[in-house]
C-alpha cells in the first residue's frame, strides 16, 4: 500500500459487527476504540503529529456491509499546515510553488448499513492549500450522515481565512442516482482593477466556522423530520446586525435527503448547535459515540 492509504471493511456476522479489514500506512492511522455493546462500531482517523503538511495525500476507502453501522471520528481538528515550497519547477505543477494537501475518501454502504462521518472541523493554517474529495455510494436502504466543516484558521495567531485554497467535494449516490454533488471552493480572490480590495475574510465575515451536513436514508428520517420542523418554525423579522449563528435546511432528491448549512462566529457554538439538533441520532450511534462526537 502507498503512503497515506487506508482501508476499512466492516462486516456483520450474525448480530455482531466486526472489522474484517482495518489497514493503514503512515502518516495515516486508524484506531478502533473498545465500546459497550449499545454503541455502533467506530474508527478514529488520526494523522501522525496531529496534522497534514503540503504534499501529503491521504486516500481512505471504506466498505460498510449490509446492516452494519460505522461511526468515523477524529481526535481534534484536522490541521493543515502551511504548504512547503516546491523544490523544483516541474512542468507537471506548471510552476506552482505550493504543494497541495489532499484527502480522498471512497465509501460504499450496503443496504441497511449506515455511516456517520462526524469529524472535527478542518483548520487550514496560513497559506495552506487543501483538497478534500469524498464520494459515497449507497444502496437503496443505506443511511448516511456526513459532516464537513471548516474553520477560519488559528484565531489566536490572528489568522482569519488566511489559507491559500480550500476545496471540498462531497458526492452522494443512491444506487445509480446522484443525490448531491456539493463542491465548495474557498480561495482568496484576484482583485478587480478599479474596485477596492475585497478579501475572502470580508466575504465570510462575521463567521469563522462553516459547516455542511448531508443526510439521507431510513436511519436518519426522524432527524430530518425534527430539523425540518424546527426550520419551518423560524420567522425572521429584521436583524439590526447579523446573528452569531445562521443555519439553513434544504430537502434534496425529492425528500430523499437533506442539506443543512451552518455558519457561526465561534466553532464551539456550531458544535453545540449540532450536538443539540442531532440528538435523534443518538439511538442509532449509541450514547458513548454521540458524546464523543459532540461532547
Amino acid at each position: 500500500m502507498n503512503a497515506g492509504t487506508g482501508r476499512i471493511v466492516l462486516r456483520k456476522y450474525g448480530s455482531e459487527a466486526a472489522f474484517s479489514e482495518l489497514s493503514y500506512v503512515y502518516p495515516l492511522k486508524l484506531l478502533s476504540p473498545r465500546l459497550s455493546s449499545d454503541n455502533a462500531s467506530a474508527v478514529y482517523i488520526v494523522t501522525y503529529g496531529g496534522g497534514l503538511v503540503g504534499g501529503d495525500h491521504v486516500v481512505l476507502s471504506v466498505v460498510v456491509d449490509k446492516g452494519a453501522s460505522l461511526v468515523m471520528l477524529t481526535q481534534g481538528s484536522t490541521k493543515v499546515f502551511k504548504s512547503r515550497p516546491g523544490n523544483q519547477l516541474s512542468s507537471r505543477s506548471q510552476g506552482a510553488l505550493v504543494e497541495e494537501t489532499t484527502q480522498a475518501l471512497e465509501v460504499s454502504i450496503a443496504s441497511g448499513g449506515a455511516l456517520f462521518l462526524l469529524p472535527d472541523p478542518v483548520t487550514c493554517f496560513r497559506s495552506a492549500a487543501y483538497t478534500q474529495l469524498q464520494v459515497f455510494r449507497l444502496e437503496t436502504t443505506a443511511s448516511l450522515v456526513l459532516l464537513d466543516w471548516v474553520t477560519s484558521g488559528r484565531k489566536s495567531l490572528g489568522e482569519e481565512w488566511a489559507f491559500s485554497r480550500y476545496y471540498s467535494k462531497n458526492e452522494v449516490w443512491i444506487s445509480d442516482r446522484r443525490l448531491a454533488k456539493d463542491i465548495m471552493l474557498l480561495e482568496e480572490q484576484e482583485q478587480v482593477p478599479s474596485l477596492p480590495p475585497r478579501t475572502l475574510a470580508d466575504s465570510l465575515a462575521p463567521y469563522s466556522c462553516y459547516a455542511t451536513l448531508i443526510m439521507c436514508g431510513p436511519l436518519v428520517e426522524s432527524t430530518m423530520k425534527f430539523l425540518s420542523a424546527e426550520y419551518r418554525r423560524l420567522t425572521v423579522f429584521k436583524y439590526a446586525t447579523p446573528p452569531d449563528l445562521l443555519w439553513s435546511y434544504s430537502a434534496i432528491g425529492d425528500g430523499a435527503g437533506c442539506v443543512v448549512r451552518v455558519a457561526g462566529t465561534e466553532t464551539e457554538s456550531v458544535r453545540n448547535w449540532l450536538g443539540e439538533r442531532l440528538v435523534p441520532l443518538e439511538g442509532a450511534m449509541g450514547p458513548d459515540l454521540y458524546r464523543r462526537a459532540f461532547g
Binding site: 483538497t131 474529495l133 476545496y167 467535494k169 456539493d182 463542491i183 465548495m184 471552493l185 474557498l186 480561495e187 466575504s203 465570510l204 463567521y207 462553516y210 455542511t212 426550520y231 423560524l234 420567522t235 425572521v236 423579522f237 445562521l246 443555519w247 439553513s248 435546511y249 434544504s250 448549512r261 451552518v262 455558519a263
Partner: peptide
C-alpha cells in the same frame, strides 16, 4: 478541482435558502 463548477460563497447559500423564513 481547477476548472469545474463550485460554490464559492457559503454565506450566500445560507442566506438565499433562508429567504422563505422572512416574515
Amino acid at each position: 478541482t481547477k476548472h469545474g463548477p463550485a460554490v464559492t460563497w457559503p454565506l450566500g447559500e445560507i442566506l438565499a435558502a433562508r429567504h422563505d423564513l422572512q416574515h
